[in-house]
Structures are given as structure tokens and as C-alpha cells.
Amino acid sequence: MLSGMATVAGNGGRDPDRRRALLDAADRVIRREGPQASMAAIAAEAGITKPILYRHFGDKSGLYRALADRHVRTVIKQLRPEFAKARTDLRVRARATIETYLDMISANLNLYRFLFHRAGAEDSRTHSHMATIVRSLGEELGAVIAADGTVADPVRAQILGHAFVGMVQTTGDWWLEHPEVDRRQVVDTLTDAVLTAMTSASRPPAGR
């Protein structure tokens, strides 16, 4: 989960290299100290005071949202080519997408928990911002499903796209809390659920 991909409100035209360096400092502290990493520790890592840290992002919420852009959008960037592979077996695509997601969140556990368990819970604007990013992935996946022709009805395709994103995200969150559960079992079960839903949705709704 990396690289700043979007300008967050509150940037105010500040030096993008300096902004990137501050986010790098935040990443290092969060990876090292976990989701409870303090803003004071992040500022100290960057060699500045906490008010100056906030000033670069508008406020603490701006910093949270900048980190969300950097990491959540990067997850999406990594997932996109997996589910968008044309002419590839649906099971293979679904499995590859799920595996990529689980690998990324488990490899960046502290950052994931900081964003989804702390920042999102602590700040309503950050929660809304991340929800918008995740929702855009559901819309994109719904469009891919419709374009594939597997599900002809574009509304049903959109419903499935959002359902798949929500299912994989919440299951991944649960799995991180249960490391004793074999990763292959999680991937297999999610893949089966996706394929079952797709197969059912490809048939005309009852009563038509």
C-alpha cells in the first residue's frame, strides 16, 4: 500500500516532495508502532512539531485522508488488473483478486488497522472518504461484470460488484483477527461464494 495518488483537500499548494516525506514518516511510525501510533511520534519522526504536521494537511483529518488516498487507492490499483483480465476464466480471476487483497492487507497489517479501525472510527470525514473510495471499486467491478456479459442486467451487475467488495473486505477483516484460519480456506470459500452468486445472477430472475 503506497504512493500518493490523489490530492486531498487542504493541500494548499504545499511542496509535494515535502508532503510525500511527511507521509513516509507517518508510514514508518505506523508500521513500527501499530494503529495506536501517536501524532506526536509521527511529527518527531519527520523532525517537526505536531502543529506544523497538521498545517501541511489542513488538520489531523487531512492527514488521515492523505494516508487513505496513498494506501487504499494503491490496494485498488493492485486489484484492478486481476479482476479486469478479459478472456480469463472467472474462477481464476476471482481467486487471483481475493488472494491479492488478502496478501496486501496481511503484509501491511498495522497500516490497514490504522486506517480502517482507528482513523475511520475516529474521524467521520475520513470514514466517508474511505467509503467513497471503496464504493468506487464496487461500481468499477459491477461495470466489469456487466461488460463481460456474464450478468446481462447492469443493475444486477452493480449489486453484485458492491456485494463482492463488501464480502471480501469484511471477511478479510475477520481473517486478520483469526490468523489460525488457513488462508487457502478463506480464499476457496470466498471464491465459491462469488462463483455461486454469479451463476445464480446470470439466470433470469424468478417470475420473468
Rank of each mutant, 00 (worst) to 15 (best):
Asp89Arg: 11
Tyr54Arg: 03
Gly13Val: 00
Asp182Val: 14
Leu63Tyr: 09
Ala86His: 11
Met5Ser: 13
Val151Ile: 04
Arg19Tyr: 11
Trp175Met: 02
Ala96Leu: 09
Arg93Lys: 10
Asp123Val: 10
Gly34Ala: 10
Ala119Tyr: 01
Arg31Leu: 14
Ala25Ser: 01
Thr150His: 12
Asp123His: 07
Val194Pro: 14
Gly138Val: 05
Arg208Tyr: 15
Met167Ser: 12
His71Gln: 13
Ala152Ser: 10
Thr196Cys: 11
Thr191Gly: 13
Asp123Met: 00
Ala44Ser: 12
Ala143Asn: 14
Arg19His: 05
Leu63Asp: 02
Thr150Val: 13
Asp17Leu: 12
Asp89Thr: 00
Ile159Ala: 15
Ser200Tyr: 09
Thr189Glu: 09
Gly62Ile: 04
Arg156Gly: 06
Gly166Thr: 08
Lys85Gln: 11
Asp27Asn: 14
Asp192Phe: 10
Ala44Trp: 15
Arg208Met: 07
Gln169Tyr: 03
Arg183His: 01
Lys85Gly: 09
Gln158Trp: 07
Ser202Gln: 02
Thr189Ile: 05
His129Cys: 08
Met104Arg: 09
Leu176Met: 13
Asn11Val: 08
Val92Ser: 15
Thr199Trp: 08
Val187Ile: 08
Thr191Ile: 03
Gly138Leu: 05
Leu109Lys: 09
Arg183Glu: 01
Arg125Pro: 04
Leu90Thr: 03
Glu122Tyr: 07
Val151Arg: 01
Val144Glu: 12
His117Ile: 02
Gly172Glu: 06
Arg113Cys: 03
His129Gly: 04
Pro51Ser: 01
Val194Ser: 11
Val168Met: 08
Val75Gln: 15
Arg65Ile: 07
Leu160Ile: 05
Thr132Trp: 00
His56Thr: 15
Ala193Gln: 12
His117Thr: 05
Gly207His: 04
His117Trp: 07
Arg19Met: 13
Asn108Gly: 04
Val75Met: 08
Thr196Leu: 15
Ala44His: 08
Thr100Phe: 06
